[in-house]
Computed example of a mutant assay.
Amino acid sequence: MSQLPDLDLNAFSLDELKQLQKDIAKAIKDFDDRRKAEARAALEAKAGELGFSLNDLVAPGSSKKQKLPAKYRNPEDPTQTWSGRGRRPQWVTDALDAGKGLEDLAI
């Protein structure tokens, strides 16, 4: 690792410090992007040696959560559905406040 020059940060104006911060953030992102590209190229090469493409081995979207099937539907607007998990939509809250039960909204 190379030595950083001794910078007297107190000699910089606020605008110069903010610009330096932006420049450093961009340099870090660029560095990360280069390392990711190098890693991808190495993985593609290794997959190719084994007779595969990297896409054959890594299913696109495999790390994303699957959308759960809807269990409830808004009777006033059938395009609005809810799986029963996560935050309760306003239309469900309104229906419950109006005296309906979840079984009334079930699909």
Results as ranks from 00 to 15, higher is better:
K65Y: 10
T79W: 01
P89S: 03
A39N: 07
N74G: 08
D94V: 10
N74M: 04
V92R: 11
E49P: 05
I107N: 07
D97G: 03
A70Y: 02
E103Y: 05
L50F: 08
F31I: 02
S63I: 07
K71A: 10
L20H: 02
W91V: 11
L50R: 15
L105G: 06
R85C: 06
A70N: 02
S2W: 04
A11S: 15
G99K: 08
F31P: 00
L14R: 12
M1K: 11
L68M: 10
T93V: 13
D6L: 12
L4P: 04
V58A: 09
K46R: 13
F31E: 11
N10G: 15
D77L: 06
R85G: 04
K29C: 02
L105C: 03
K65N: 09
F52I: 05
A39G: 05
L105F: 08
P78H: 06
E44M: 01
G101V: 07
S63M: 09
G84W: 02
Q90S: 14
L102I: 09
A47R: 00
A106F: 05
G48I: 01
G61T: 03
A59V: 07
E76L: 12
R35V: 11
D94E: 14
S63T: 14
D94K: 13
A27N: 06
R87M: 11
K26D: 13
D30A: 14
Q21C: 06
R87Q: 13
A11C: 10
A106G: 01
Q21K: 11
G99C: 06
E44L: 00
I28M: 09
A39T: 09
A39M: 09
D104P: 06
P60W: 01
A25L: 12
R40P: 01
D30K: 06
S83W: 03
G48E: 09
R87W: 03
K18W: 10
S62I: 10
S2C: 04
D56P: 04
R88D: 07
R73V: 15
A95P: 08
A39W: 04
T93H: 02
A47I: 00
